[in-house]
Amino acid sequence: VTLFVALYDYEARTEDDLSFHKGEKFQILNSSEGDWWEARSLTTGETGYIPSNYVAPV
């Protein structure tokens, strides 16, 4: 499993987005949709879409 870490804070803009804080780690569930990836936060357990340019591989 490839994990990603948040480089910046992000505040959700829609109900499908996932808010997160810098340093939070994610498991990517689906990265085939372009710039927005479906991810699960390893901190909160919540699932939603995150901007791929806000995260980097651990």
Rank of each mutant, 00 (worst) to 15 (best):
Q27K: 07
N53H: 13
D9L: 03
F20S: 01
V55E: 01
V5R: 04
L3N: 06
I50C: 01
H21K: 14
E33A: 15
I28F: 03
E38D: 05
D9E: 07
N30T: 09
A39K: 00
V1R: 11
V1D: 10
D9K: 05
E46Q: 15
V55W: 01
D35F: 10
A6V: 01
V5Q: 09
S32H: 12
T2P: 13
G45Q: 07
A39M: 05
E11H: 12
S31V: 13
G48D: 00
G23Y: 05
K25V: 13
E46D: 08
T2C: 07
W37V: 06
P57L: 11
L18H: 02
Y54R: 07
Y54C: 05
G45N: 09
S19T: 11
E33C: 07
S31A: 12
S19P: 06
Y10R: 04
G34V: 12
W36S: 07
V5S: 04
Y49C: 06
D16K: 14
D35S: 09
V1N: 14
G23S: 04
W36R: 10
W37K: 03
L42A: 05
G34F: 13
F20Y: 01
Y49A: 05
W37Y: 09
G23M: 03
I28K: 04
K22Y: 06
E38R: 10
S32M: 15
L7N: 03
G23I: 00
A39S: 03
D9W: 04
G45T: 04
A39T: 02
S31P: 12
E11T: 13
D35W: 08
Y10H: 06
R13F: 09
N30V: 08
F26I: 05
K22S: 08
L29Y: 07
R40E: 09
D16Q: 12
S52G: 08
T14A: 14
E33H: 15
I50F: 01
G45D: 06
S19M: 04
T2K: 11
F26W: 01
Q27L: 14
S32L: 11
A12Q: 06
L42G: 03
V5T: 06
W36F: 15
S41A: 07
F20R: 00
R40L: 13
L18G: 00
Q27H: 13
G48Y: 02
S52R: 11
A12V: 02
V58D: 12
E24P: 00
L3T: 09
L18A: 02
L7T: 04
V1Q: 13
E46S: 12
T43K: 12
P51D: 06
G45C: 07
P51R: 08
L7K: 05
S31C: 06
N30E: 08
K22M: 08
T2M: 13
E11P: 05
G34W: 11
A12T: 05
E38N: 08
I50Q: 00
E46V: 10
T14R: 14
Y10V: 02
V58P: 04
P51V: 02
W37Q: 03
K25R: 14
E46T: 09
A39G: 06
I28D: 00
S52H: 08
I50V: 09
I50G: 00
V55P: 01
V58S: 07
E11I: 15
E46N: 13
T2E: 11
R40M: 13
L7G: 02
V1G: 15
Y8E: 08
A6M: 01
Q27T: 13
G45H: 07
F4K: 02
L7M: 09
G34M: 12
T47M: 09
F20P: 00
L3W: 10
F4P: 00
F26Y: 01
D17M: 13
E24N: 06
G34A: 11
V55C: 04
Y54T: 05
Y10W: 10
N30M: 08
A6P: 00
Y54N: 03
W36A: 05
E24Q: 07
F20V: 04
V58C: 08
Y10M: 03
W36T: 07
Y49H: 07
W37C: 02
Y49V: 08
Y10A: 02
A39C: 05
G48V: 02
V5P: 00
L29P: 05
D35E: 13
W37T: 03
Y8M: 10
D16M: 14
Q27D: 08
E11S: 12
T2R: 13
Y54W: 08
K25L: 14
G23N: 06
T47A: 08
T2S: 15
G34I: 10
T2G: 12
R40A: 07
A56C: 07
L29S: 05
F26N: 00
E46M: 15
V5A: 05
K25I: 13
I50K: 00
H21W: 11
L29T: 08
R40W: 10
W37D: 01
A39Y: 02
S32K: 15
H21Q: 13
N53V: 11
K25Y: 15
E46A: 12
E24T: 08
L18C: 02
S32Y: 12
N30I: 07
R13N: 10
R13G: 09
N30P: 05
A56R: 11
S32N: 11
G34E: 13
K25N: 09
L7F: 03
E15D: 13
N53Y: 09
W37F: 08
G23C: 04
T43M: 10
S52K: 15
L18N: 01
K25T: 14
A6R: 00
Y54D: 02
T14P: 03
H21L: 12
S32F: 09
L18M: 11
P51F: 06
L29M: 10
E33L: 15
E38Y: 14
D9M: 04
L7A: 03
D9N: 09
L42Y: 08
T44H: 03
V5I: 13
N53A: 12
L29D: 05
V1K: 11
L3P: 05
G23F: 04
E24D: 15
S31Y: 09
Y8H: 13
G48S: 02
G48N: 01
S32C: 06
T44P: 00
I50M: 02
A12C: 05
T2F: 10
D17I: 11
V58E: 12
E38K: 10
I50L: 07
T43G: 06
T47D: 04
A6H: 00
D17F: 14
